[in-house]
Write a protein that binds this DNA or RNA. Structure first.
Lengths: 335, 335
DNA sequence: CTGAAAGCGCTAACAG
DNA sequence: CTGTTAGCGCTTTCAG
């Protein structure tokens, strides 16, 4: 099982090093010889053993994508962007689901280090203690953090402009004439969510007319969205619009509205965040802030590749990608 | 960057082969020596280079998952099952998005072969010509095909019991008293879909009472579902229930119903297939046939691992996993 | 331009 | 139980 470079060398009557050169660099070898070698390689159906190559070059030509769960459509989109970028550079991508478990995460990283991956793209990183951060940094493997708004210390980061997104959502609702708006979101510690909140509040407070804004926190999932919306409806009957910190919460909000017989957007306007594919399928199609998920995965891999190519660890890069409002049919214009 | 087995050997005053044994098999080495070596390894923060190991053992301890697009939630779920199973065996999983492009697919396979992956899990395989099939088989890498109902020739297969699923859907609607049912589905060539259709038709024809059944074909996506439903409504006004060949089509069907002012389930009953996470989030929650997606990924990896472990290519295995009806709120009982 | 030789880090006989 | 010795398949000096 396996025709090696030796076979090709023997068969074409040259030395293995010549075969190697002919197959790789290309230069430093006679055009004729090269063509001959190539022909033989094809005839023999030779496939270079990348493992062997990796052993000598020290690089495996593979990257890893560490995320909490690929079933989350947000991550699936990021993963696709990352994989496409990796493929374009002829790298492959190892998928790791960490479930946000710090232990599992470190175990993955450790195993990836043994495999000599050329870089790791970490999304939804579990909180790391100092020792773990240092362990990561000490690995000598390029790492880029996705969706970490705070500086990644020694690591490069990629994230969306969450604050602007929050501002965009608020401004849209303001423009539509809403004067009592609720923002339903997750816990304070969540960096991205609090950035969105900050943008939202900043904008609302800067409004000319007096605007009532209220922020409610809960789980940032479907159920959380549904429950928080119920609270909003109960406690703040004057609210005419809800800005959900992500699309899934918005779906929950829509469910609660429906169950209470409220029509969206007639009785309640709704804005989400993420622009998941599903937000256009749900009814009514959701107005939301688009996050360039695919591009984030792509950008992260590009940075990783640059880092991996570089001889020494370069200065970390922080890339912030733009967001935009996608107007669909979940918001109404107030009288 | 890189403490090797040599360093550990020198530092602990034994030969590298002893270190290797201490770290791997465990047996054939004095308990004391082993502990000492292990301690030194830890102290030096030694991580074995798996690439080097792979070169000599001939196995890379990694599998590949080839699918059309990870953004499809169905595949994401399969991928999660596969990754969990791989992780449990300490293998890692390389993600490949082929977009159902035969060329891209073969290119991936070829590259994976160069990397010496220990097995390939192929989902949504592009149609392969004879030469390609042979090329695949000739690679000597274990391959399992997912979602291929027809025998995979030399390959093992894993798929859900689609025919039973179709039957289950039909029976449910029949039990509810529906007597005019439409099945909206994809092209005839699609093996899984035609299995579902067969189960559906078989059951409907076996019904005691006379039942009108009609099958319409189109794209098996959201738009297709929406368009086919419009056709059904226009051409077959007596239809009281639609069985969509997959959930996404059912979502399209729901959209059309909504746009025409029809209420589900009051005016139209709807059954899907797949049980995507979203089918419980949409309104009304969709009654559907559950496909064990996670388990399919898991099973495929288990077979792959068994194949990879085996010395010689064993006889291919065909695994068919059970499906079940998930009753939610998109169907009504007829008078 | 090409060949010879060293060696990447590790495992696996084979001796002892 | 432990050390010696070959390589795994390839790249990469270093000569020629």
């Amino acid at each position: 099982m396996g025709v090696t470079i030796k076979d090709v060398a023997r068969e074409s009557g040259v030395n293995i090093s010549t075969v190697s050169r002919a197959l790789n660099n290309g230069y430093g070898v006679n055009q004729q010889t090269r063509e001959h070698v190539l022909a033989v390689a094809v005839r023999l159906n030779y496939r270079p053993n990348r493992v062997a190559r990796g052993l000598v070059t020290g690089r495996s030509h593979s990257l890893a994508l560490l995320l909490s769960d690929i079933r989350n459509p947000f991550f699936a989109e990021v993963a696709r962007g990352a994989e496409d970028a990796a493929l374009a550079a002829d790298f492959d991508l190892i998928l790791c689901n960490s479930d946000l478990d710090a232990g599992k995460q470190m175990q993955y990283v450790s195993s990836l280090a043994e495999k000599r991956v050329d870089g790791i793209l970490m999304n939804s990183v579990a909180a790391l203690n100092r020792a773990q951060r240092e362990q990561l940094a000490g690995l000598g493997i390029p790492i880029v953090l996705l969706n970490r708004s705070v500086g990644g210390g020694p690591f490069s980061t990629v994230c969306a402009d969450n604050e602007t997104g929050g501002a965009l959502a608020a401004q849209h609702l303001l423009d539509l004439g809403h004067r009592a708006i609720a923002h339903i979101t997750g816990p304070r510690q969540h960096g991205n969510l609090s950035d969105r909140e900050r943008g939202f509040l900043r904008t609302v407070r800067a409004a000319k007319n007096r605007v009532h804004a209220v922020v409610l926190r809960g789980d940032f999932n479907f159920t959380g969205g549904a429950e928080l919306t119920a609270k909003v409806l109960d406690r703040y009957p004057k609210v005419t619009a809800i800005f959900a910190a992500n699309d899934v919460m918005a779906f929950g909000a829509a469910r609660t509205a429906l169950e209470r017989g409220l029509k969206i957007p007639d009785d309640l306007s709704l804005v989400g965040f993420d622009n998941l594919e599903f937000s256009s399928i749900i009814y009514p199609p959701l107005t939301t802030i688009h996050q360039p998920k695919y591009e984030m995965g792509q950008a992260a891999v590009e940075i990783l590749l640059r880092l991996a190519r570089g001889t020494e660890s370069q200065t970390p890069e922080e890339r912030r990608l733009g967001v935009k409002l996608i107007e669909r049919q979940s918001c109404r214009k107030m009288a």
